[in-house]
């Protein structure tokens, strides 16, 4: 496992109307932290730690922002898969940032 240097990338777009505010960012961090691999988020030539709520908040990703997710290490592919799904599902929030009841809980894919 420690030899695993898999790198996975995925382009995503923030589509929930409030952007990557605290609650979605927290969901992102929570999910990312379940994977042993490193998770980076690239935005405008800057790179942020996908497991840091502070850094993601500083990223100031509004609705429509395109991000590149990069995972490096064990479970990188699964991590990218799960995180991309979370983003495309608009973090399971509606237009007002209220949780969408029917949302399936995001699981670390395996």
């Amino acid at each position: 496992m420690s030899e695993d240097t898999t790198v996975a990338c995925r382009q995503v777009e923030i589509t929930n109307s409030l952007g990557l505010h605290v609650r979605p960012a927290m969901k992102f961090v929570e999910l990312a932290s379940r994977f042993p691999c490193e998770v980076r988020v690239r935005h405008n030539d800057n790179e942020f730690n996908g497991k840091s709520l502070l850094e993601l908040t500083m990223m100031a990703a509004e609705c429509g922002t395109r991000l590149e997710l990069v995972a490096r290490g064990p479970d990188a592919l699964a991590a990218i898969e799960a995180l991309a799904e979370l983003v495309s599902a608009r973090f399971y929030e509606d237009e007002d940032g209220e949780p969408v009841e029917a949302a399936p809980p995001p699981e670390p894919g395996r």
């Binding site: 609650r23 927290m26 497991k51 840091s52 502070l54 850094e55």
Partner: peptide, 14 residues
């Protein structure tokens, strides 16, 4: 949830 977020921020690796 806000307080939970604060807890997360305190634990922030960065």
């Amino acid at each position: 949830e806000i307080l939970t977020a604060h807890g997360r921020m305190i634990a922030d690796p960065t």
